[in-house]
Simulated scan of single mutants.
Amino acid sequence: MKPPFLPGWSLSLASGLAGLVLAFAVPAAPAAELELQGSRLVVSGMLDGTMIKEFTEHLGSGTVHTVVFEDSFGGTAEAAGAFADAIRASGVQTEVRGQCMAACAYAFLAGRTHRFGYGLQVNGILLPVAQRPTPAELAIRWRGDEAHKTLAEFTPTSASAKAMETSAAPAAARDNWQPDHGVLFTASPTLFGRVYNTYYCDGTQGRDFSKCERLADADPFKLGVLTP
Rank of each mutant, 00 (worst) to 15 (best):
R141M: 08
E33L: 14
A103R: 02
P3N: 06
D202H: 07
D219R: 03
S61N: 12
A216K: 13
T134C: 12
E35N: 14
M101R: 13
A14S: 08
P4K: 09
G206P: 06
G144A: 03
L226P: 00
F5H: 09
V183P: 00
A28R: 14
A32N: 01
A139I: 01
E35P: 04
I125K: 00
A77V: 13
M164W: 03
T113F: 07
T150I: 03
A102D: 13
G111C: 13
G62I: 09
M51E: 13
R174S: 05
T186S: 04
A89Q: 14
A86D: 07
V67E: 03
T76H: 12
C212P: 12
D208G: 10
M46P: 06
L215I: 06
P189T: 10
P170D: 07
V183R: 00
V122N: 01
Q131H: 14
A172S: 15
L6M: 15
P133A: 01
V122D: 00
V43T: 11
S44D: 04
V43E: 06
A187I: 00
K53H: 10
S39F: 04
L13S: 14
T155V: 15
L17V: 11
V21G: 14
S167C: 08
A28C: 11
K162S: 14
D208W: 05
G206I: 01
I52Q: 10
D217P: 00
R40Y: 10
A169N: 10
V183G: 00
H114E: 12
E78N: 11
L6Q: 15
S158F: 10
D202R: 10
F221G: 03
K211C: 08
Y200Q: 01
A29L: 14
L109M: 14
A152D: 15
F5Q: 02
F55H: 06
A130N: 08
G144S: 06
S15G: 04
C212G: 06
R88M: 04
L215E: 02
H114M: 08
A172W: 11
R214D: 02
P189W: 04
